[in-house]
């Protein structure tokens, strides 16, 4: 069972994902998600302007970029939570344009949120059960007759308990989700996403606000998803984590994809360094001014 997996210090990286040069918009051997010309403007600001991007199947892809780069907006567009101005994008060959968010989720593309959305006044177990797909008891008319959905409910509960055990939340199953700590809510949200057996899991800042002790276990859970055959796309600021678990990195800045590549080479890409630190980060802006500063200092001394 996967809960027996000991923390892997050196995760197995998937390589050979792309075709040709590792440049922005490069082709992948087996893409699961393809976005083409997706743009979204808020007033005068072009928040997302992605020409072409492909997310490789069966790998962990990190979407990184400085604050305001449009990562979360891009997430929202891909999952149907926001509507782009232009563009088309497809998931496993099926177009996702104008597909409402709940249908996207039913197709097997499940997301989590940057600000955790645990359903506070539902028990942890109910949170989990809510994640299961195709429940006949969710129809109002069938809900009245428990014998129709009871068997399915038991199966869902067994699966939920199994997942909770894996995420070490089983002791909490009858508690309100609101009573969990921030890190436990992240775990619950991830576990809940798995209830529907997704093919692509999109995690929006899974590590934000999680204490270092939980970080390792969250990392292991993400690596676990890959070993179970799921594809993971996540947004993250923690470069250490990105380098540790990601197989592929997509860098966004000012709404555009500025670089792609495996985590070690992409960090050395000048475009990435520019995006994070500014284009003139290595020019010493003070160097040429030194004489002037000296002169001013002397002037001030004279005045006194």
């Amino acid at each position: 069972m996967s809960s027996d997996v000991t923390p892997t210090s050196k995760p197995v990286k998937t390589t050979g994902l792309h075709i040709g040069e590792a440049e922005p918009g490069c082709r992948k051997v087996d893409p699961i998600l393809i976005a083409d010309g997706v743009t979204r403007t808020f007033g005068g600001l072009k928040a997302v302007d992605v020409d072409h991007v492909e997310i490789p199947r069966g790998a962990i892809t990190a979407l990184i970029g400085p604050n305001g780069a449009g990562k979360t907006t891009f997430f929202n567009l891909l999952t149907g939570f926001d509507k782009p101005d232009t563009g088309k994008w497809e998931f496993e060959g099926r177009s996702l344009a104008h597909v409402p968010a709940y249908r996207v989720a039913r197709m097997g593309l499940i997301r989590t949120f940057q600000l955790t959305k645990a359903l506070g006044l539902l028990s942890v177990l109910d949170n989990m059960k809510l994640g299961a797909k195709g429940q006949s008891g969710e129809n109002l008319f069938r809900a009245v007759f428990p014998f129709i959905w009871r068997k399915q409910e038991e199966e869902i509960e067994a699966k939920a308990v199994e997942l909770l055990t894996r995420f070490k939340l089983d002791a909490k199953q009858t508690d309100y989700a609101a009573s969990l700590s921030g890190g436990q809510r992240k775990l619950l949200e991830m576990a809940r996403a798995l209830m529907s057996d997704p093919t692509l899991v999109m995690l929006d800042e899974p590590m934000a606000g999680v204490n270092p002790a939980l970080t390792q276990s969250l990392l292991d859970h993400i690596l676990d998803l890959k070993s179970q055959g799921m594809t993971v796309l996540f947004v993250e600021h923690d470069m250490h984590m990105v380098r540790h678990i990601a197989d592929w990195v997509v860098v966004m800045a000012e709404g555009r994809i500025v670089a792609e590549g495996d985590p070690h080479t992409v960090m050395e890409n000048p475009a990435v360094i520019d995006a994070y630190l500014g284009a003139h980060h290595d020019t010493d802006l003070g160097a040429t001014e030194t004489e002037n500063v000296e002169a001013i200092k002397e002037l001030i001394d004279d005045e006194q």
């Binding site: 499940i110 959305k117 809510l130 529907s196």
Partner: peptide
């Protein structure tokens, strides 16, 4: 939004 993300209409 959380419920929508779990595939419910």
């Amino acid at each position: 939004d959380a419920v929508r993300a779990l595939g419910k209409n």
